[in-house]
Design a protein around this nucleic acid. Structure first.
Lengths: 177, 177
DNA sequence: GGCGGCTCTTGATATAAATCAAGAAATCAG
DNA sequence: CTGATTTCTTGATTTATATCAAGAGCCGCC
């Protein structure tokens, strides 16, 4: 979809960067000033609100990560984003990002389609909350992301699936047998 | 953001259309071949699956409606979309839609930003399911959309908030007093 | 290699919400 | 207006999941 030279040019606009385990990619209430592609590693997106902590998502290699609302419209991030492992990123600042479209005229269109894909994933996630039990959500997510289950603390997966670690543990036990 | 003449040109590409109450804007498993702006009226988006019916969303005036996955990428619709009232739409077919960008070069960018806005709404909706009780979800939705509560059967709102009509009714009773 | 802190599991109990059932209220069609 | 649907409410009961509490496993660190 991109010409060879365009691809090269865009890639060169992203700068390699590393996060060590535990480092924050972005903190809640701060502006998101960069967009990053995850080359390797995992980033957890979460909030800390009146005592309890909610994991919203765990970002994995091959996807972009940023707080999109803050990045696109300004304002500050709704979430924390923290490296769960060593993370290799390719990052671009807002100012550089705005130049991409000069290099790749189709950028907005491609990005739009990419965001639509993500949108559809969220729609399905909501549908799961409207119609499925904790056990069904576990099962479906496990089928789609089996590898995540031995890479991160399970309590985080429990939270992003909308259940407690205890419930998660009991479902897991049932599934293993 | 659009020049006067562009706005005119785009508007003319959308054709006025009416749906009578109960008519389907789109049926599940059929391709979405148009994008529509809701001028007036309400459209309910739902699935009918193994006996139970899940209302995913109720689309209201000022927003666009289509099954975005099907419209952008082909394939068939995941949902039914049915008029809850008389509905006035401005609709455009896929083939005409693809011509918009010739008239309004910024179209992809504008549309991208629009989709991002919707994306953020979905993220927040998921967050509500991860962190809030039925009562809190009711309250928040009521505060944001009070007018919907006397326009559509409440059972549909209950479903899109992820609770049964009975639970919804009890919460409602509590809130009224 | 052992200590301290995370993480996970397990059991007991509590609670929110679902389900079942029936009747009341509202809406619609003729 | 009147009967027939549909929608909403209410109470009784059940169920899924949360909460509380304690112990077990695992892991990094000195």
């Amino acid at each position: 979809m991109l010409k060879q030279e365009e691809l090269h040019a865009v890639c060169n606009m992203f700068k390699e960067e590393k996060l060590s385990k535990g480092a924050y990619f972005l903190k809640q209430n701060q502006p998101a000033n960069k967009l990053s592609f995850i080359q390797s590693g995992l980033i957890r997106i979460f909030t800390h609100e009146d005592g309890k902590e909610i994991t919203q998502w765990i970002s994995s290699p091959g996807y972009f990560v940023t707080e999109i609302s803050s990045f696109m419209f300004g304002g500050s991030s709704r979430w924390n984003m923290q490296a769960l492992t060593e993370v290799e990123l390719f990052s671009i600042s807002i100012s550089e990002y705005q130049k991409i479209v000069k290099v790749v005229p189709k950028w907005h269109e491609l990005e739009k389609l990419f965001i639509v894909k993500c949108f559809v994933i969220l729609e399905n996630r909501i549908y799961n909350h409207l119609s499925k039990s904790a056990e069904q959500r576990y099962q479906e997510f496990f089928n789609q992301n089996p590898s995540l289950f031995n890479q991160v603390p399970l309590q985080y997966i429990a939270s992003m699936l909308g259940m407690t670690p205890e419930t998660f543990s009991r479902i897991r036990k049932k599934q293993l047998s």
